Amino acid sequence: MEHPLHGLDVVLVQTRFPENIGMAARACVNMGCGHISLVEPERWLRDKASPLATPKGQALLDGITVHDSLADAVADSALVIGTTARRGGWRQAMLSPERCAAEVAACLRQGGRVSLVFGPEDRGLDNAAITHCHRLVCIPTDPAASSLNLAQAVLIVLYACAAAMREADRREADRPEAGAAAGGEPHGPRNVPQPEAVEPASGKADAPGPLASAADQERLMAALRDMLLRIDYLHGDNPDYFLMPWRRLFGRAQLRRHEYDALMGMCRQVRRALERKEG
């Protein structure tokens, strides 16, 4: 049976305690997410995670994949969203859990894969990890007690994603053409204000080509970085920091593969022109 959040991968980076992995697995099965990836876990002991995953989470524990890098873990995803409690600096343009869920649902309904990335229990995602995330989500909490348990954070974000998928399915079923196709009148509530949730998805059949993967986007960022350094647009001691607005721009754009190909072609042509000029 396909999971309600099929295509969504929870990525846990440098987890310290296997018990937290077990609790995160329980949260995943509660919300219909079928896969967890681990990136450089400090300790991955299945027997320690198992009791906290409950019987329903055992199959998910069996399917866990372990990766040497975050880039490898998210390579196949079209959308990578990192979670953070901190703001400022590298952490700009935060999404609410609801807005995050809307973007996740839209991507999944277009056939794209999504990675939700959670950092270590004691410090969260560092700046190097943030660069691999197209978007960032922050769970609002009381400032006096802002720290969440890892599994709590997983549960909250996945709950929002599952709710957004259900809302998208309901809205799709309520479309007039859906009712006509079923041989009856469209049903469901009308003239009800909609929450900030899912944009109406056109579905896979109408999607103009596949989405570019995170690995594609990393190659594009490397080519763009090289081009911008050559023309002295990026400079200083920390060009990766000044490249972040471009990362966010392309992350929001949800590039299609043919758009990625066009941008890569542009970067190659600019590089060749500059090399001829320098030569």
Rank of each mutant, 00 (worst) to 15 (best):
C138H: 14
L148M: 11
W90S: 10
R86V: 02
A164K: 01
P200E: 05
D216I: 05
A101Q: 03
L8T: 00
M266L: 15
S147T: 15
Q269H: 12
A222R: 10
M244N: 14
A197S: 15
E185H: 07
R171A: 15
S202T: 11
L38C: 05
E40Y: 07
G203P: 08
K277L: 15
D122N: 13
C28T: 02
C133M: 07
L12Q: 08
V137M: 01
E185W: 12
C33F: 01
L136Q: 00
V74Y: 01
L243R: 06
T65W: 10
Y260N: 03
L52H: 08
Y233L: 09
L274G: 03
D237P: 05
A168M: 04
N238G: 04
P51I: 09
D261C: 12
A180S: 12
L255S: 03
K204F: 09
L95S: 04
L95F: 08
G179V: 06
A151C: 10
A173Q: 14
G203C: 10
E103D: 14
R87L: 14
Q254C: 11
A173V: 02
R256F: 05
E278I: 04
D226I: 10
P41I: 01
C267H: 08
M31I: 02
A160D: 07
L61N: 03
N191S: 14
Y241D: 10
G124H: 01
C107S: 13
R166W: 07
D216S: 10
M266Y: 11
S115I: 06
A162L: 09
E259P: 08
Q254P: 02
W44T: 01
L52N: 04
G203D: 12
A102P: 03
